[in-house]
Design a binder for these strands. Sequence first.
DNA 1: TCGAGATGGTTGCTCTGGTAACTGTCGATT
DNA 2: AATCGACAGTTACCAGAGCAACCATCTCGA
Lengths: 144, 144
Amino acid sequence: MSKLALEHFLPYRLNRLSSAVSQQFRAVYGPHHDLTVPEWRVLATLAQFGTMTAKAIGKHSSMHKTKVSRAVRALEERRWLVRRESEQDRREESLSLTAAGLKAYGEIVPRALAFEAGILAALGSHAEPLLEALALMEERFPVD
Amino acid sequence: MSKLALEHFLPYRLNRLSSAVSQQFRAVYGPHHDLTVPEWRVLATLAQFGTMTAKAIGKHSSMHKTKVSRAVRALEERRWLVRRESEQDRREESLSLTAAGLKAYGEIVPRALAFEAGILAALGSHAEPLLEALALMEERFPVD
DNA sequence: TCGAGATGGTTGCTCTGGTAACTGTCGATT
DNA sequence: AATCGACAGTTACCAGAGCAACCATCTCGA
């Protein structure tokens, strides 16, 4: 009977690695240790694109709408984000970061980039091939 | 102010990819669609090493002991696994697969290997570099 | 020998996240 | 204008997972 070594099995390895990286990445939030991953994604997306709807955030950051909804509320309570009812379509709301939100983002980004740079540097010449392979796999496993 | 494009950010990409792969992998369980990831890991580990304790399973498959405990109970209820109290140390129990458990494993493994082979084939010449880079990152982000 | 700490495993509490159902709004067809 | 299906966003409910407390057992030292 054919066997399988779990520790060499690709889905398992990806899962493990992804959790470990996310885990370590939490340290990057620095003084904002209580930030969750969904909150970070909403923050990053809004900082990247400016005002946008919850739907658009979900699409760009591959998050389920309930996840987005909850992260938005949390950031709103933190006063990092404000909602404004859209005028053309009152079903949706325009979300944007406050000055405090942008400030926090500005504090986190350099650390996030340094974190990523650290990993890539450790990979050395293996970094570029890894990124290419990742891109190929992303094509094979598209968003939903 | 420096910015960051979430869709190019390594931790985000790893997370997304890992979820998508795990998601697709569920189809591989075939007729056993209700199997969970922890249950699959326990099954695979026991098939790989034969009789062992819950502690050892957790260590090998990077799972928290409560996750192992619950997966073991689920497999036991399915009659895919039996517990036997260890004689030397009555705190631990020797776990092993039943014939039914081995049979299910035997059905899943070829599909799992084919699934993995499909991914690697699609990567073509990028497969080998990817695996090397993965190994390097696993060193950098060791199991707890 | 007995008491204290360590260890394998289980369970209660709590938090996170997805599904499905709901609300309010829009657009199109009548 | 009224109605119906589509759609943005929220929420109730449930499953999964980690933390901490717990139980039973073992080990080591006084």
